[in-house]
């Protein structure tokens, strides 16, 4: 995944069972964003791998004032890349459970 300047990591151990999982997002390189992020704190949130899309969360983060609306794509892509990695890893480690 290309470096968007926004980092998204698991905020808990993933055992492949739960559909909703805690993620943590923070800005690693503000220069890569179009707008100025509100503050460089880490934002932790729960994401439902089955029901939700990264764009939903990115839009809610913008609504909540964390990011400028011009950064919707970058934030959504950062979340999407991490979610894809989580699903890929689940498929490899717990194929029968998926």
């Amino acid at each position: 995944a290309e470096d968007t300047g926004v980092r998204v990591e698991l905020a808990e151990e993933d055992h492949g069972r739960k559909s909703s999982i805690a993620l943590r997002l923070w800005v690693e390189d503000p220069k890569k964003l179009k707008g100025k992020p509100k503050d460089n704190g880490a934002i932790e949130f729960t994401f439902d791998l089955e029901k939700e899309t990264p764009d939903d969360v990115a839009q809610e983060m913008i609504d909540s004032g964390f990011f400028h609306e011009n950064d919707l794509k970058i934030v959504a892509k950062s979340i999407r890349d991490r979610v894809a990695l989580i699903l890929w890893r689940r498929e490899r480690i717990w194929p029968r459970m998926q």
Binding site: R7, W26, E28, D29, P30, D39, N40, G41, A42, I43, E44, F45, T46, D56, V57, E60, M61, D63, S64, G65, F66
Partner: peptide, 27 residues
């Protein structure tokens, strides 16, 4: 504590905490 919580109208909670210095690229 240095945690703040923001609840979006759709119900999702965002919990903001300081990023460890070590995780921030050189600005």
């Amino acid at each position: 504590s240095s945690f703040t919580q923001v609840v979006h109208s759709a119900g999702r909670r965002f919990i903001v905490s300081p990023v460890p210095e070590s995780r921030l690229k050189d600005q």
